[in-house]
Nucleic acid binder design. Structure first.
Length: 570
RNA sequence: GGGCCUGUAGCUCAACGGUUAGAGCAGAGCGCUCAUAACGCUUUGGUUGGGGGUUCAAAUCCCUCCGGGCCUACCA
């Protein structure tokens, strides 16, 4: 048994996430966490809402709520949705927690003491009407290059030219539209990542097994142009972790907060501390996951995220904890995902295009989404959600191959012997062959789960389900029964035993159906099959079960068409 | 502009210098009748985007052209 620390990228607080966000970190990390728990490992699986930054403040204003209240409400919304998808976080925290405030401030002090933070005074655009400094992209105006009237202060979306906000002609606030803007000097803290470039580069070089998507992005940032640039880690905002606090080694930073990308990854650690607090545990209980001087050396730490998050997880967060000089656990493996598209285009919040997590749960049970999304996860490339593919995947894999297998076995048994495992006959060569086949597939499945190749794992799992149908078809107990009921009983006994096996193997992907299968078979405590022949004899003659309801209802063509129309957007 | 990823069967993907390029879905045929008209077997289908090169051997490595996508540091 080993200890495995798993973090899923933090969903941003400003709204409900769509299926692309779900499949890019939360869902695969959950399948991985469930698998590792099933294999008997000690798992700490952490997620949280990422609550700071300008978009949160604007979303709160739009909702007409104070930002703290907005975030608290939206945290609950996201928590409920996560529960609905059966995401098995050990703790779902908040980056606005007291733990994160304290730890973020602590690490900043350590970085300062190590000479890795410096004060820089820079000029930024201030909006008098909005009463706030504006990030570059929240300033709009006419592009000096192409004349496009809605160019943003960081880049013109029309001609793609990189801009400085002061380049814009007739600049205005994207928040209020006000043109009452001025440039003010403001002091900020910068993280001197450039001083850590060689150290980070050498560390990345040791990660030979990381996905190329992960390392190539890190290398690009390390070596592009002048190399890794220092990064401002504070902002002129109200909502966030205050930069000025008792014991801060700097002054004059009142009214500023740490930049969201500085405090958000720290929340991985802080959320584990929140977990300890919530369960009446001591600091030592969370530190053994995170402090290498407190037992975390043998922890295997895996992060899941979409590819947009890679620079922060490969560079700035490691720079933060390495630079602190303290003994924090560094990530061992970064699993990054590409994008999920919707019917050939992008998911779009503003255009109402695509499916959002709350809607998905209203439409179909979570297992349906989990299965389709994980068996089509964008691991090697962007992938495409289509209703047709979703319908085909759910109907074929879940309803026909797995669900119908459970139905045909239990109903046949019920009709001939009643709802208990029949006695008589013995397993023979055919059963040995199935055990051998499943054993081979199971090894492959486990290998793919260990290396976090989720798509390949689902393909093996499906093949294991298929093996049951192949066996039944060849053994044909309905024919054998007429001549030799004892032999038929052995066949059915074997097939019934496949059901709890399938339930346990499938649990990482379809936990609700797995639970329903175990309940029906009266086999709730079934463990991972370390010994397949034993597992196939777990349900002994006379063991009572109940024939389950249909496990997966098929998606009708009319239903699919209605959903296609409903979510087409404009 | 720069960098990275990518293009394989009608569709979604696998194969990561080594037999005859594989699987699921879709299509065709046969079988079974326990089951959610489900299941099983057989089968059609590819000039691996185009062109050139390296090699005994290339989907795989190199060059080039064409197409798709992502990132480019103040959205997160």
């Amino acid at each position: 048994m080993s200890r495995i620390l798993i973090t899923s990228a933090l969903p941003y607080i400003n709204g409900i996430k769509h299926l692309g966000n779900l499949v890019g970190s939360q869902l695969p990390s959950d399948a991985y966490a469930r698998y590792m728990r099933a294999r008997g490992h000690e798992v700490m699986y952490i997620c949280a809402t990422d609550e700071h930054g300008t978009p949160a403040e604007l979303a709160a204003a739009k909702a007409g709520k104070p930002v703290a209240e907005f975030c608290a409400d939206m945290w609950q919304v996201q928590k409920d949705i996560a529960d609905g998808f059966r995401l098995s976080f050990d703790h779902f925290g908040r980056s606005s927690s007291d733990r994160n405030h304290k730890l973020t401030q602590h690490l900043a002090v350590k970085l300062w003491e190590a000479g890795l933070i410096e004060e820089i005074t820079e000029s930024q655009v201030y909006s008098n009407a909005d009463g706030r400094f504006l990030p570059d992209r929240y300033i709009e105006g006419t592009c000096p290059n192409c004349g496009f009237e809605n160019a943003r202060g960081d880049q013109c979306e029309n001609c793609t030219k990189q801009l400085d906000p002061t380049d814009l002609i007739n600049p205005r606030s994207a928040v209020s539209g006000s043109t009452d803007l001025e440039v003010r000097d403001t002091k900020h803290l910068y993280l001197r990542q450039s001083k850590m470039r060689d150290q980070l580069d050498a560390w990345i070089d040791t990660k030979k097994d990381w996905p190329i998507l992960t390392t190539s992005i890190a290398k690009k940032w390390l070596h592009d142009g002048d190399g890794l640039q220092d990064r401002g880690i504070t902002r002129d905002l109200n909502w966030g972790v205050p930069v000025q606090f008792d014991g801060a080694p700097w002054s004059g930073m009142d009214g500023k907060v740490f930049y969201v990308w500085f405090d958000a990854p720290i929340e991985y650690i802080a959320a584990t501390a929140e977990w300890a607090d919530a369960h009446g545990k001591s600091d030592a209980d969370w530190e053994r996951w995170w402090r290498t001087d407190a037992g975390a050396d043998d922890v295997h730490y895996v992060q899941f995220m979409g590819k947009d998050n890679v620079p922060f997880h490969t560079l700035s967060f490691p720079a933060t904890i390495m630079g602190s000089g303290e003994d924090w656990k560094l990530v061992d493996f970064i699993k990054s995902y590409n994008w999920l598209n919707y019917e050939g285009g992008k998911f779009s919040t503003s255009q109402g295009r695509g499916v959002f997590m709350d809607q998905a749960l209203e439409i179909m049970p979570s297992d349906y989404w989990r299965w389709w999304l994980l068996s089509n996860a964008p691991e090697s490339n962007d992938s495409d959600f289509t209703w047709e593919s979703f319908q085909a995947g759910v109907n074929k894999d879940l309803a026909d191959v797995l669900g119908n297998f459970v139905s045909r076995v239990t109903k046949f048994c019920r009709s001939k012997w009643g709802e208990e495992v029949p006695a008589g006959g013995e397993y023979g060569a055919a059963e040995d062959a199935v055990i051998a086949e499943i054993g081979k597939r199971l090894t492959a499945y486990q290998t793919h789960m260990e290396s976090i190749e989720i798509r390949k794992a689902t393909a093996e799992l499906r093949a294991i389900w298929v093996a049951g149908n192949e066996y039944l078809q060849a053994a044909a107990p309905w024919s054998v029964y007429k001549e030799d009921p004892e032999a038929a009983a052995a066949i059915v006994r074997f097939a019934l035993n496949l059901i709890p096996l399938y339930a346990v193997l499938s649990e990482p992907f379809i936990p609700d159906a797995a639970a329903a299968m175990l309940t029906a078979m009266n086999a709730e405590g079934t463990k991972w099959p370390d010994d397949l022949p034993n597992a196939m004899a777990a349900l002994a003659p006379g063991h009572a079960f109940t024939t389950p309801d249909v496990l997966f209802t098929k998606i009708a063509d009319e239903t699919r068409e209605a959903l296609e129309a409903r979510f087409a957007g404009e």
